Computed example of a mutant assay.
Amino acid sequence: MPAGAKAAYRDATHGPVMVDLGDVPRTMYATASSLTLPAHLANVRWPALDALPQLTTVRCSGPDRGLAEALTARPIIQSLVWDDPPHTVDLSTTHLTTLTISGTGPRLLRLPPELIDLHVEGEPPAAVEAAGEGRWIHLSIAAFSRGVSNGLHGVRRLDLRASGDLSLTALEALTDLEWLHIRWNHPHGGLLDDSRLSGVSRLHTLRLTDAYGVDASSLSHAPTSVRRLDVNGIRRSQSELLMARHRGTPVRVTVWGAKSDAWLASNIDNPLRDWVDDDEQAGAAACEAYASALRAIDHLPADDPATATRAQPILRHLIEQLNAIEERSEIIDTLRREEAADAFFDLAQRAGITDSEAADWFDEWRDF
């Protein structure tokens, strides 16, 4: 890190500064760490960033507009979130350590050697240029449906989000893969019979989350190198088979969040379903409170201007129920609070309520 950049970061004033990126000048604190670039600006006044010497994260969308050059000149900026980037993205001379690509992905992505976290939340790039074929990158793919991009076959840590049944044969090109985490979204699928990963000889840790569609028999073909198998969320019947299959083997199996088929039949799509892992009675009450609110919201007429108004007492009653659950059981920690917020915002969105208004209601009504 250049001495000048470190000195500017250390000596930043704590008062407001004017930031003029080329549209309407805005007042920000000089110590701001995050900035979202206006998408409509064809020509960005990049020198305006110099007023923010502690800026470490930038969010943008659309064309480059000189972004890569501006990041190269500002080594303090180490995190970038880019939605719908152009066909070719060259960040090789920047100092980024974290990059999130969403929307329509680039066809060619050039990465800096310092990058350690790459999150692909939309269409994956066709080709990637990365140091060591991505050997030092923790790769996360939010919608995995086919193989990893060319140029990232050296990754050692891979986090996948999948929907439905999944075959891992496309990962056999990742011969250096050591750590694999698969998380299922709805629908919760399984691992297909041909998911043997026979070409992966260094994989030592396999983690599965929300693996409610996974059959224990599909894990009997795991690479012989695997020594740790962690499963968070699985059918209880499959959990027992899984433990039995690996008893007496070198694989250490850890399972938590196992649930009965009867419970999952009613709650598999409930975003608060995992609360029963902390407190069975409180978790069941939270699931029922959400399910009741969902039924009420879904019965409101669509495309009716009065729907948002009629949804307000439904949403408030949900929060009051969660407040009461928290008062009795103290179950809502930081993670559960975020899950409650996500569930609340999803219901509000179904009723046509803006995110900003929903956020105001959530913060006003909750006691957790």
Rank of each mutant, 00 (worst) to 15 (best):
G199C: 10
T249M: 01
A258Q: 15
R236V: 07
L177M: 10
V276S: 07
W263I: 01
R236E: 14
Y212R: 06
V253Q: 01
I268S: 09
N270V: 04
E240F: 08
T254R: 15
L166F: 11
L160R: 03
R245F: 12
L229R: 04
D261F: 01
D215N: 11
D278G: 11
V231S: 06
A162Q: 11
P250D: 07
R252V: 09
Y212V: 02
L160H: 06
D279R: 10
R156V: 11
M243T: 13
L171K: 13
R252W: 05
H246A: 08
L206M: 10
P223I: 04
D278H: 13
S201L: 12
L191A: 02
E178V: 01
N150F: 04
L168Q: 12
H221I: 00
G190P: 01
W184A: 00
T209W: 02
T224N: 10
G190K: 00
S260G: 10
D176L: 14
S198M: 00
W184H: 04
E280K: 12
H181F: 08
L191T: 02
R156I: 06
D176P: 01
D277M: 05
A211S: 09
R228P: 00
Q238Y: 08
T224K: 14
N267K: 04
R157C: 03
G233T: 03
L160Q: 03
H204R: 13
T205K: 09
D269H: 13
L152Y: 03
L177N: 12
S220K: 08
E280G: 03
W256R: 15
H181M: 08
S239G: 15
L166H: 06
T169S: 15
A265H: 08
V155K: 03
P223N: 09
D210R: 15
L192Q: 12
A173G: 14
D261R: 11
S167Y: 07
S218N: 03
L160V: 05
V200W: 02
I234L: 13
G189N: 02
L264T: 05
A170E: 15
D274V: 05
L219C: 07
S239V: 00
S220P: 00
W275C: 02
P223K: 07
P187D: 08
H246D: 00
T209V: 10
D210Q: 14
V155W: 04
G189A: 02
V276H: 01
I268L: 13
L168N: 12
S220Y: 01
E240W: 11
H186T: 12
R235M: 12
R252Y: 05
T249I: 03
D210E: 15
V231T: 09
P271Y: 09
A258T: 00
R207W: 01
L152A: 08
L158Q: 10
T224C: 03
G248I: 02
D230Y: 15
D278F: 13
N267Q: 13
G189F: 02
E172T: 12
S198Q: 08
L171D: 14
V200A: 05
G233M: 05
S195R: 05
R235E: 14
I182H: 06
R235P: 02
A211V: 06
G248L: 02
D269I: 03
Q238N: 09
K259V: 00
L191H: 02
E280V: 14
L174V: 06
G233K: 11
H186Y: 11
R245A: 14
A265T: 00
T175Q: 14
A222M: 14
P223L: 06
A262D: 12
L158T: 08
G213E: 03
G257L: 03
P187R: 05
Q281S: 13
